[in-house]
């Protein structure tokens, strides 16, 4: 029997950079290969250590169980620590993930829309410019 497939982790904010490079005088030419920090691990660090959410809340955001989130988070910390201590490059890449953004429903024109610029808050419906819209928690489920 094949193993159970990995549950896809939801990424709400992809990173703005693709990695980190070490610098400094004491740097040896080769410090070993770069470390691949998966996107799901980046997201776990962002939610737990930057937005200061609890593991329970972060797990709900990423659509995985709390123990799974804790495992992703600890593996992320291990990789970041390894990169810093051993002066290795950190490459943010890969992982079993899917992107999703928040969806809104306009009550005037009845359209659904999302917000790709997460740092800018939505102030009006992009279609009819009405301010009467509400957040839809799970668009895909309401769509089925």
């Amino acid at each position: 029997m094949s193993p159970r497939p990995v549950r896809l982790r939801k990424i709400s904010n992809p990173p703005i950079i693709s990695g980190f490079k070490p610098y400094g005088d004491k740097l040896k030419p080769v410090n070993g290969p770069g470390i691949f920090l998966h996107l799901e691990e980046y997201e776990a660090i962002r939610l737990c250590d930057h937005e200061m959410l609890s593991h329970q809340q972060a797990a709900e955001m990423m659509a995985v169980s709390r123990p799974t989130l804790t495992r992703i988070h600890s593996s992320a910390r291990k990789k970041i620590a390894d990169a810093m201590v051993n002066g290795r490059q950190l490459i943010i890449e890969g992982g079993k993930i899917f992107y999703d953004s928040e969806w809104y429903l306009c009550s005037r024109c009845g359209c659904y829309f999302n917000n790709p610029e997460k740092l800018i808050e939505v102030t009006e419906c992009p279609l009819c410019h009405s301010t009467e819209f509400s957040n839809v928690a799970d668009f895909d489920k309401s769509n089925d």
Binding site: Y99, F113, P116, E117, P126, L127
Partner: peptide
């Protein structure tokens, strides 16, 4: 989403 283009349904 990755291209940061807004979708309106």
């Amino acid at each position: 989403d990755s291209l940061k283009i807004q979708m309106i349904v």
